[in-house]
């Protein structure tokens, strides 16, 4: 409604954003709630979004129901749910899917816990806070590929600092091949995921913490509430909506992540870190199975949507009770 009001400013009526627009011919000549000026301002952004984001997305969904392949001369044809039937029996894909879920859940949970701890510390009046604050932002500024390369140097079995340090502390014999070990590769990669994703979460949580009313804390502490009790009764309720949105987003981002693991292990050893995105990438751009890979993408979206719906609904229910 502010649209009509703001527009009429030109004629000098000076209505604020809160007043309802008067009914006039101009007010009625709107398409989807926007008049000519509005559309004119929106169009430069709208066209690229439609052509390069919304369009491809719909096209991609349609591709999932076809036998599209790269570099094939015969015409692509719809094959109904044949891709999904094949996918149901594709044990390699489901194995990768399980790894993807495990990775996304572990990284998201650890990221959240560690970022919450850091945000709480950064919200204190500690010395050297600036150092931690700056360091916490650096991973955000680094290209994914560089983060991957950096941790490959750390994990390097011979020249890496991790093996060397552990050897000096007499914890291991210093010959662990972190990224090639069947049991250690996934945990090692998860640590990198946590490291790389901490900045955003910390910044958002810190912003949330700064909205917690100080008076409530003082009142609670005067009433004799301890540290933990104040956290659960004062900080947490204010922080909760922020936590919900950032964990949901983190989960999506992590499940769809690609670059980090591509650089670290390329899915190896023996497919132990083959995230679904890597699997689908190979299917599409190594084997050229466009339709099949699109079907994988669609299944990934569907599962994420269901998981998120369950997660957010449960949390919202908790809120009500």
């Amino acid at each position: 409604m502010s649209a009509g009001a703001t527009l009429r400013l030109r004629r000098g009526t000076g209505r604020g954003a809160g007043t309802p627009p008067p009914r006039s011919t101009a007010a009625r000549r709107k398409v989807l709630g926007l008049d000519k000026d509005g559309w004119f301002l929106l169009l430069p952004a709208l066209i690229p979004v439609l052509v390069l984001s919304v369009g491809p997305l719909l096209y991609g969904i349609a591709l999932a129901f076809t036998d599209a392949q790269s570099g094939v001369t015969h015409a692509t044809s719809f094959n109904g749910i044949a891709n999904f039937k094949d996918l149901r029996l594709d044990s390699l894909f489901w194995q990768s899917f399980r790894i993807g879920l495990l990775w996304a859940v572990c990284v998201t949970v650890l990221q959240f816990l560690m970022s919450l701890g850091l945000a709480l510390l950064l919200n204190q009046n500690l010395r050297l806070r600036w150092l931690a604050r700056t360091l916490a932002l650096v991973p955000w500024a680094m290209p994914e590929v560089v983060v991957g390369i950096m941790w490959r140097l750390v994990y390097n079995p011979d020249a890496g600092i991790l093996n060397n340090t552990l050897h000096h502390l007499h914890l291991t014999d210093g010959t662990t091949d972190w990224l090639s070990s069947l049991s250690l590769a996934l945990p090692a990669v998860i640590v990198v995921g946590v490291w790389a994703g901490m900045p955003q979460t910390t910044v958002v949580l810190l912003a949330g913490l700064q909205n917690v009313p100080l008076e409530l804390h003082e009142a609670a502490s005067l009433d004799g509430a301890g540290l933990w009790r104040r956290f659960t009764t004062v900080t947490w309720p204010t922080l909760k909506p922020v936590v919900l949105s950032i964990t949901a987003l983190n989960f999506i981002w992590n499940f769809n992540s690609f670059g980090l693991v591509y650089v670290l292990t390329s899915g190896g050893p023996g497919g132990k870190t083959e995230l679904p995105m890597l699997f689908a990438y190979d299917e599409a751009f190594r084997y050229g199975q466009f339709g099949y890979a699109a079907a994988m993408g669609l299944v990934m979206v569907a599962v994420i949507a269901v998981l998120l719906a369950v997660f957010l609904r449960n949390r919202l229910k908790e809120d009500e009770s």
Partner: peptide
């Protein structure tokens, strides 16, 4: 528009990149 900002975060890139590549 706000809806698109959120939804665009949700889709795996592979679903976008294939049609984008073809276009």
């Amino acid at each position: 528009g706000t809806g698109w900002i959120l939804v665009s975060q949700m889709f795996p890139l592979v679903l976008i990149i294939i049609p984008l590549f073809m276009v």
